[in-house]
Design a binder for these strands. Sequence first.
DNA 1: GTCGCCAATGCAATCGATTTCATGCTCGTC
DNA 2: GACGAGCATGAAATCGATTGCATTGGCGAC
Lengths: 338, 338
Amino acid sequence: MSTIKEVARLARVSPATVSRVMNGEVPVAEETRRRVEDAMKQLGYRPNSFARSLASNRSDCIGLVISHLAGPFMGTLMVNLEEKLRLHRKSLLVASGHNELIREQESIDFLMSRRCDGLLVQSDRLHDDALVALAAQIPLVVINRRVPGLEGQCSYVDNQQGGYLATRHLIEQGHRHIACITGPRWKQDATQRLAGYHQAMEEAGLAVPEGAVVEGTWQESSGREAVDTLRRRGVPFTALAVGNDDMAIGAMLHLKELGLSVPEDVSLVGFDDEVYAHYVTPGLTSVHVPVDRMAQAASGRVISLAYDDPWQGPLCFSTHLVERGTVAPPSSAHVTHP
Amino acid sequence: MSTIKEVARLARVSPATVSRVMNGEVPVAEETRRRVEDAMKQLGYRPNSFARSLASNRSDCIGLVISHLAGPFMGTLMVNLEEKLRLHRKSLLVASGHNELIREQESIDFLMSRRCDGLLVQSDRLHDDALVALAAQIPLVVINRRVPGLEGQCSYVDNQQGGYLATRHLIEQGHRHIACITGPRWKQDATQRLAGYHQAMEEAGLAVPEGAVVEGTWQESSGREAVDTLRRRGVPFTALAVGNDDMAIGAMLHLKELGLSVPEDVSLVGFDDEVYAHYVTPGLTSVHVPVDRMAQAASGRVISLAYDDPWQGPLCFSTHLVERGTVAPPSSAHVTHP
DNA sequence: GTCGCCAATGCAATCGATTTCATGCTCGTC
DNA sequence: GACGAGCATGAAATCGATTGCATTGGCGAC
């Protein structure tokens, strides 16, 4: 593998000039530039990224910490992050939190010791304070979460608006008894989706009866259980606003097992608009989350922070409803109760 | 940020000794080691990874090229890769091929110029030759593909065995007219799954009629279309062995739309055992692919190659069948034909 | 013709580690 | 008591780029 010196010798210039040709900031005579470029090509020269980083104190790497790499969205998220970063010739260094706080912290440490130029963090477990502190040390963008004090460095989806949309849709179809299955309360997106539900109910002058909100785990099985819980509690409902698609599908399958039909007896709206939302019959009506745009914004923003590029554009994105087949007007005859 | 020299001064030793303490290969007196470690702690010292890499000519990074980051399995794949690599204190540098040959090549170039210590490549588009050539330049492990001449550096699943398993299961249930929907023929896993189908059919002495094999795109929609194609061709079938779950689900939903029921009229086996395989009703019987073990093996192997660690263990993994509800004995009255 | 300026380029220090070789010290042996 | 072996440590070269400063040469102004 050839070095900058060999290129310099072949092009009959100094290494400094070769460096200037590569980095292109400083003017170089046309003739010289050509000679250097020829020499580089001829030798198949590849700059040594270690030496470059050492001297320039930049790594051209952006670190990504993800709470769980196999989670929903992560594919879409990574595709879009990677694409944008590579456009800027930056590499993506990935570390997973494996769903544990301590491993998320380790991951951040790990990426910091690699001296990434910037960090993208998607985490539910880390404290707001920890993120604010981190942002003081390194260009940071938080993904899918809004951290007070870090406005402008958080790229996220307006989950409350999504919850509102889902619930309002049910109300518009005539439902009055709408229960809600949420994700874990300690997750911001879960509580915000729930807030949207409350907002829509309140706006419509509908009371949310005691026990009409059930906390799930995001998983399909907890959707099933939530249905049982609601029935056990004796909460009447003709519709369910559900925090994500997996739980919605779980609820839906379980309702069928109980002899209730969707949407005739119970209407259902999911959240996330996963690819498999239409695999159930009827297809699941769901709230679409623009993960791609959120990811693009996040990567754009982290680049702007890390390399003082200019930046403009939104960091908060709104959702929209995708109607399929799980919502219909209530047939009053079928108000469900235990 | 403090440097090795500052640590050395504080501990009253030379930088060389600090280096030796860090790397631990060379013996250092107990008392000295303690002083150095105290100094490191006191200064919050973090070795500069650029300088380290420059001097040692190692990056402690493993590159990962993935044909499409949002593809099925990629989540599971990455979780397992990342976990194993981090255990060895290696970083994972990710680049996507975005489903195009040229961008896969670019990705490899990109990671090579970052001087990764090793490369993990999951690609359908790259030629065998290109991979063999690449392996001569850098420690390489190929994921989910068997490359002649690179035995021992390919971690993959026995797709033929999986195809065989699926088809034999249908045969054992009494089916004689089994059609097949495959993935794109230029993908190795697709053709191998198909080979398994042929193997099982032949073994059972069943002929595969002209037109009973339809090529799809892996996508749900192509499963639907394949069903139409089969009917148009007039191929009789009581069962379908399908190349992946998405197409299987597409076929299944479409069969229902056509008024046929699964499994009474048509039995169905998918492949991949995706999480959502049981979201359809009845749940899809499918062939489970041990992606986790394949990923662990791949990362173990690449580490062994890059850092000459010893290595042993299998690189080829077999599948198993997960029975749900889409297979039943054929009801001869319902042999499907156009 | 000389001076000064500017553009282009070279020189050499620097980044922060690793690693080879040399050195000093201790200890056991004869 | 001298010598050699062996261990712990230090000095200094090295990895391959970047970059501040010095130098050169060409050219226009006076």
